[in-house]
Simulated assay, not measured.
Amino acid sequence: MFTVVAIAFATLAQAQGTEVAFGTVQQDTSLPVEVSADSLSVSQSDGSALFTGNVIIGQGEMRLSAPRVLVYYTENQTGVDRLEATGGVTLVNGDQAAEADTAEYEVNRGTIRMVGNVLLTQGANTLVSDSMDVDLEAGTALMNGRVRTVFQSGDN
């Protein structure tokens, strides 16, 4: 019986992606975005700022870190539109963490797309996939591509 359920779950995961909870509290995407880094380079031509070296981005309880983050501001330069993190990204929200090669955070939409070798850790459980789409306001994530996990039995 367990084998049939596991096969059905794996087939569904490959066809549609797997939705999981993400974050222990609902993220308020209207909070200010704080950025710290070793260096900053600003481009007036396209309204972007490149933060490099130990970049840490905070918004409420959420933290995102990466070696390199490109920030695009809104057209009127009054706020952050989106962030593109590269070089190995770690996202922490509450007691859950995710790692990926890259991430794009669309601040106004409250979404984060993580791509490449995604590893989501939730307590003792881990999920691995090709990409993950996080909806911060709903507190959910959709794992896409080849999704893999190991279920712990109640005795472990």
Rank of each mutant, 00 (worst) to 15 (best):
A13C: 10
A13P: 10
Q14N: 14
A15N: 14
A15G: 11
Q16F: 14
Q16D: 15
G17E: 05
T18L: 15
T18E: 15
E19L: 06
E19H: 08
V20I: 15
A21C: 08
A21E: 14
A21M: 12
F22R: 06
V25P: 04
Q26V: 12
Q26P: 09
Q26K: 14
Q26G: 11
Q27Y: 12
D28W: 03
T29E: 10
T29W: 07
S30I: 05
L31S: 12
P32H: 09
V33K: 09
V33I: 15
S36G: 12
S39F: 03
S41K: 14
S41H: 11
Q44F: 09
S45C: 04
S45V: 13
S45L: 13
S45F: 06
D46C: 03
S48F: 00
S48W: 01
S48G: 01
A49S: 13
A49C: 04
L50W: 01
L50N: 02
F51L: 12
T52N: 08
T52A: 07
G53H: 04
G53F: 03
G53A: 06
N54Y: 09
V55P: 05
Q59S: 10
E61W: 04
E61H: 05
M62T: 15
R63V: 11
R63H: 12
L64E: 03
S65Q: 15
R68G: 00
R68L: 03
V69F: 00
V69G: 00
V69N: 00
V71P: 01
Y73P: 07
T74R: 12
E75P: 09
Q77M: 14
Q77T: 09
Q77P: 09
R82N: 02
R82P: 00
G87M: 01
G88R: 02
G88I: 06
G88S: 06
V89I: 03
T90S: 05
T90H: 04
T90M: 06
G94F: 07
G94W: 07
A97L: 04
A98G: 08
A100M: 07
A100F: 05
